[in-house]
Amino acid sequence: MTDVTVPKPDMIKADGPQRDVSSRDFTVRRRSQSALVLRRFLQHRLAVISLVVFLVLVLLSLFAETWWQYTSTTITDDLSQGPSLKHPMGTDSTGHDLLAKVLAGARVSVLVALLVAVLSTAFGTVFGALSGFYGGRADTLMMRFVDLILTVPSLAILITLGATIAGGGGDPIVIALILASLSWLQIARIIRGLFLSLREKEYVEAARCLGASNRRIIFRHLLPNAVGPIIVNATIVVAVAILAETALSFLGFGIKFPSTSLGLLVAEGQSAASTRPWLFYFPGLVIVLIALTINFVGDGLRDALDPQQNRVRA
């Protein structure tokens, strides 16, 4: 996260008081830091296009009722029609318009994934921060706990929980909570590793000399320095959560009727894949599109926030 910003020539005036220059330099650098990040992100063309596509998709699905004539429950007279102008994604055997269903499914899937990202990032960050900051025995215990959860395939835990919690009712909020309960491990590890090195920095010592409490050091001094990895990881969690939720719903342990999800739509479409392939193609393509755009945005954010880090994706 170190960006060398060359102070503008007009700031280094020989006649100005030294103190004034450094403080003005500091404010300029702060502003230019975020401006630099923004500029670097905007230079990543694929990431910008992806962000636009993703946002358009989210807006279209959120406001589907206002611009599309059918809803996911409307039954039209067209049964099992292929894609046409009237039904761009075709219809199913009961006459539902697939575009309306896909929009409804995308809305649920994206909202669940965003909720998972927010919840798991918040919890994982605090968990990792405490573990890394305090270190010692607490750290060992907390990280061993994380390792233990990782010894069991997370999909198996998700299936177990999805089948049992709330009687397997398939409420999107419950599914989001279940997914979040397993998604915080990665960010906790990253933040813990970061805090182990950050806590040794001079500015932490300085803050402590000035009488700052541990709480203040963690939240006001260390966390802002970890914001890059947190944001990047949160975007990756969104992509991973979309894939996990749709997989869970596909298997029948995630979101269920009357709510809908893209995974559920693929499962329905697969049963008639040879006769009505569009029912299978479109929901899956939308999943790929959402996950792909988020992954590209994450990649752009990584390059923008942390140009020195290796471009490795997990």
Binding site: G263, I287, L292, I294
Partner: peptide
């Protein structure tokens, strides 16, 4: 990237 975004069931 495409493989990374591909749901395995699909």
């Amino acid at each position: 990237f495409i493989a990374l975004s591909m749901p395995v069931f699909w």
